[in-house]
């Protein structure tokens, strides 16, 4: 099922949560809404589900305008961050709930409901736990039950609100892989919300990076990581360093020195140079960025050093091989291998 969000605006008590959002979600894709808290990602998800109504704009499921349809009519599977399992029901009763509450005309017979619930329990690898109550399960198991419960109604779209947010790191990684497998097997159009970029990069076919109620960038994980289109995205996805530079004569300058990087276009004036700390090359001579080591620490297999550039006014971080001999106060010259330039407005 394709889902199209068209010029949606949402206000809560006159406070805008989403400004004019448009987004096309392709059928069968696994798409992540990624952003810091307060970016409006959960609001967007709840609007798609019908748990909130848009102040303006429309939401289409396929060709049909679903904006004013109720949650029940939209037939979406929703998985909540805190599971929201029905605590007085067994696992089997939780999973069969969606089928049991159907009107008698469309409700499958009892045996069929039970069979399908057990099948789903098997799909989420929890066979044998059907008689347990939710509080007798671990967090990861509960979230798997919640997913089985959402899948039971054969939803047109599967929506997950920070599904792994309440779990510890180990379980998160396992469930991530497992969700990807389930998605590949069932081919539901799946939208999930997360503030964890690692999760989004690993899991999603496409990312929607959001900030302050607006979409910053939409693209594949590679696109977003390699070609961030705004300082926000560059800073939010992956590690980044930035430095104020001047653009003149088709070259970049820092503190009156050319740093050996060509300007990408005709613009001149102040700009911000963004690059990844690990994406730099050390240079012996020629025009480069030079700095004095102010601090260094070991991060995994590399050494992260903080360099003071231009007499200590600016600091950037770069990664060096862990056995690099640079000590405090030594001088290092480098050039970013890949970088992006964002003009400073005003």
């Amino acid at each position: 099922m394709e889902v199209r969000v068209a010029n949606v605006r949402k206000e809560f008590d006159r406070f805008p949560a989403l400004h004019d959002i448009s987004l096309d979600i392709r059928s069968g894709e696994l798409i992540a809404l990624l952003g810091p808290s307060g970016s409006g990602k959960t609001t967007l998800l709840r609007l798609i589900a019908g748990l909130e109504a848009p102040t303006e704009g429309a939401i289409y499921f396929g060709e049909e305008d679903a904006s004013y349809k109720s949650v029940q009519e939209r037939n979406v599977g929703f998985v909540f961050q805190h599971y929201a399992l029905f605590r007085h029901m067994t696992i089997l009763e939780n999973i069969s709930f969606g089928l049991k509450v159907r009107p008698s005309a469309t409700r499958p017979p009892k045996g069929e409901i039970r069979r399908r619930a057990l099948e789903l329990l098997d799909l989420v690898q929890l066979s044998g736990l059907e008689k347990r109550y939710p509080n007798q399960l671990s967090g990861g198991q509960r979230q798997r039950v919640a997913l089985a419960r959402a899948l039971a109604i054969e939803p047109r779209v599967l929506l997950l609100d920070e599904p792994f947010g309440a779990l510890d790191a180990q379980v998160r990684r396992e469930l991530r892989k497992w969700l990807r497998e389930i998605h590949d097997n069932t081919n539901h159009t799946t939208v999930f919300v997360t503030h964890d970029q690692e999760e989004a990069l690993e899991l999603a076919d496409r990312l929607v990076v959001m900030s302050q109620g607006m979409i910053e960038q939409v693209g594949s994980p590679d696109d977003v990581y390699d070609k961030p289109n705004s300082p926000f995205v560059f800073g939010f996805i992956g590690e980044s360093s930035y430095l104020p530079v001047e653009v003149e004569n088709k070259e970049l300058w820092v503190g009156g020195r050319a740093i050996g990087l060509p300007a990408p276009d005709e613009t001149t004036g102040a700009a911000l140079l963004y690059f990844r700390p690990h994406d730099v090359e050390l240079v012996e001579d020629g025009a480069a960025l030079a700095g004095v080591v102010a601090a260094s620490r070991r991060v995994g297999g590399t050494r992260r050093v903080e360099l003071e550039i231009g007499g200590g006014k600016e600091r950037v971080e770069i990664d060096l091989p862990f056995d690099h001999p640079a000590g405090e106060k030594s001088r290092i010259a480098f050039r970013p291998k890949r970088w992006r330039l964002f003009p400073v407005k005003g």
Partner: peptide, 25 residues
């Protein structure tokens, strides 16, 4: 309201939500 939202997202109407989810809680 989490449980109620879960119930309606699973297709339960208001009455079913009240009797099967809210009241037992």
């Amino acid at each position: 309201t989490g449980d109620e939202e879960a119930a309606i997202s699973l297709g339960a109407n208001g009455w079913q939500t009240f009797w099967r989810v809210t009241l037992p809680n």
